[in-house]
Simulated scan of single mutants.
Amino acid sequence: MTHQPNIDALDEFLISARSLAEYRAIFTLTDADLDGHILDRPGGAASFTAEASELGATVIAADPIYARPAEQLRALTRSETVPAR
Rank of each mutant, 00 (worst) to 15 (best):
Q72R: 07
E51V: 05
L29W: 00
F48N: 00
H37E: 10
A50K: 14
Y66G: 13
D33K: 04
G43P: 01
R18S: 10
L20G: 06
I38S: 12
A21D: 11
F48R: 04
I7E: 12
D31N: 15
A61I: 04
A17T: 04
L34M: 10
Q4A: 13
P5W: 03
E22R: 13
D11N: 15
D40G: 00
G44E: 00
S47F: 00
L76K: 04
D8W: 02
A45L: 08
R68I: 06
L14K: 12
L29V: 03
T49Y: 02
F48K: 01
G44R: 07
R68D: 07
S79K: 13
R41V: 14
A9D: 15
I60E: 14
A46D: 15
L20V: 06
A75C: 03
L34Y: 06
S79A: 15
I7M: 11
A70W: 11
G36M: 09
L39F: 00
I15M: 09
A9S: 04
P83E: 05
G43Q: 00
Q4F: 14
D35N: 14
L29S: 01
L29E: 01
S19K: 04
E54W: 05
M1S: 12
T81F: 10
A50G: 11
S53W: 01
L34D: 06
H3L: 14
A46N: 08
S19T: 15
A62K: 06
I60H: 09
T49C: 05
E51N: 06
L14Q: 11
E12D: 14
A9C: 02
R68F: 05
G36D: 11
T49I: 01
E54F: 00
E54V: 09
A50C: 09
T30I: 05
V59H: 06
R18W: 11
F48H: 06
E71M: 03
L34V: 05
I60R: 13
L10H: 10
D8S: 14
L73F: 02
N6V: 10
A25I: 05
A84F: 03
L10A: 15
L10W: 10
A46M: 09
H3G: 07
R74G: 05
M1F: 10
A52T: 12
Y66S: 04
E71N: 13
Y23H: 09
A67P: 00
Y66T: 15
A9N: 11
A45S: 08
L73Q: 02
A46Q: 06
R85N: 05
L76T: 07
F13A: 01
L73C: 09
V59G: 08
I26N: 03
T28E: 11
D33C: 12
L14H: 11
R85C: 08
P64A: 14
Y23S: 03
S79R: 15
G43A: 09
L55W: 12
R74T: 08
S19Q: 09
F48Q: 00
L10Q: 13
H37M: 04
T77H: 11
R85M: 04
S16K: 06
L76G: 14
D63R: 01
T77G: 15
D63M: 02
A84N: 11
F48P: 02
G44C: 01
A61D: 02
T58F: 00
N6S: 14
D40N: 01
A25S: 14
S79M: 08
A25T: 12
T81P: 07
L14P: 00
P83Y: 06
D63F: 03
L55Y: 07
T30H: 02
S53D: 02
